[in-house]
Write a protein that binds this DNA or RNA. Structure first.
Lengths: 225, 225
DNA sequence: CTTCAACAAGGAGAATTTTCATGGGCTGGG
DNA sequence: CCCAGCCCATGAAAATTCTCCTTGTTGAAG
């Protein structure tokens, strides 16, 4: 789950970023409008935490740009108590929720969870693909009824594939999904092989073969047969 | 057990808060409508003690907001003798009980206990999970028939896990549940390890192994096998 | 058909992150 | 005042994630 935090105040940004990572999200931060805009255009996030008052522009413009691009990203607005107009405008523009400063961490987490749950597989309780059964709520994966334990990256990788059934995913896309902006164009993406290998192995051990097909020179995809 | 006390009169608020803490609850207080509303939206309480006459609004509106949100929280209304209409309205709106000022502390405690008993695990007299038997009324935990003594935090932690069987609970969710609004962003949640360790140890001593599974990098959950 | 270059797979182990255990200080109730 | 229980810091242990290197495979050009 990738989250972008847009907040200009350094202390708060750091604290929130730490909290989000602690809660298990792949969190990144932008300090101003320019940074945020770049990241929004560059990557796809599951949820954006948006402070409306930025030193070099309004968060509302960011929101507008995002929604104009037809992005499915969830947006949680973070605003000062006195900026009620902004709040209303934000909701009109397609934000999912808002939160008034100062707020409590657990409250933030609860709202983020709610937004992500709403989006993730349309809130399905379970995802079925051939012999696979995934229960997102319990973070459990079953193969032919047997529970298997995956590491976090393996789990994320599997869900990414399941979220795009049949579509070809390039190494780069996978790496970016798993690691966020920590990856660079110059980086090697070999570590994807490792996770892919481990995931395949764990699936094959339970007799689920050939779920992940290699498209030579392109990427990988889930195959239906 | 988390309780929110909504009461504007400072002296009474302090006294009741102390009494509730004394009785072993995790009690927090709100002095007015605004505070109470924020906290209600923020956290999930097991029970709310609600004074209907607040300086900046009616407790009835709070109750309405709460029930509109589908909250399962129990509500005990605290009201002056002359506000009979309010009392009736409150019960119509889904309050569980009412108490007329002035009242005895023991009376309050009895009512709170009754409400919580009714709500907790749907009023079950006992909770069974594998070899575990918990009697919420007596705050007793038995493992394979043997009584074990837990500290308050250990007990709360166990009940929190039992209330969310199979679901993954992050460290900060646990911390917030155990400590209420006393936790903050910069805090470390390492102390959870200590309670977890102590609880596990006490369970294992009686032969109940592997009940609490560690989800590396995510959190903890009760495991069914 | 052969050869080459790019790509993919696999194994081993280093690096990093997360969790656990121990001990000490602090606090609040008795 | 004492003590159980809670919180926190430190360092050890464990699990995961990533890197490196070798080997095998594929597709296309000659």
């Amino acid at each position: 789950m990738k989250i972008l935090l847009v907040e200009d105040e350094a202390a708060l940004r750091t604290a929130l970023l730490a909290s989000l990572k602690q809660a298990g999200y792949l969190a990144e931060a932008a300090a101003d409008y320019a940074q945020a805009h770049e990241k929004i255009m560059l990557y796809q996030y599951d949820c954006i935490l948006l402070d409306l008052t930025l030193p070099d522009g309004s968060g509302l413009d960011l929101l507008r740009a995002l929604k104009a691009g037809g992005s499915p990203t969830g947006v949680l607005i973070i605003t000062a108590r006195d900026a009620l107009d902004d709040k209303i405008a934000g909701l009109d523009l397609g934000a999912d929720d808002y939160l008034i400063k100062p707020f409590h961490l657990s409250e933030l987490n609860a709202r983020v969870r709610a937004i992500i749950r709403r989006r993730q597989f349309n809130g399905q309780q379970q995802i079925v693909f051939r012999d696979l059964l995934v229960l997102p709520e319990l973070a459990e994966v079953h193969v032919r009824g047997e529970l298997i334990t995956l590491t976090r990256k393996e789990y994320d990788l599997l869900l990414y594939l399941l979220a795009n059934p049949g579509r070809v995913l390039t190494k780069e896309a996978i790496a970016e999904h798993l690691c966020g902006d920590a990856v660079d164009a110059a980086d090697s993406f070999d570590f994807i092989y490792t996770h892919l290998k481990n995931l395949r192995k764990k699936l094959q051990e339970k007799g689920a073969d050939n779920y992940i097909r290699t498209m030579y020179g392109v990427g990988y995809k889930l195959s239906h047969e």
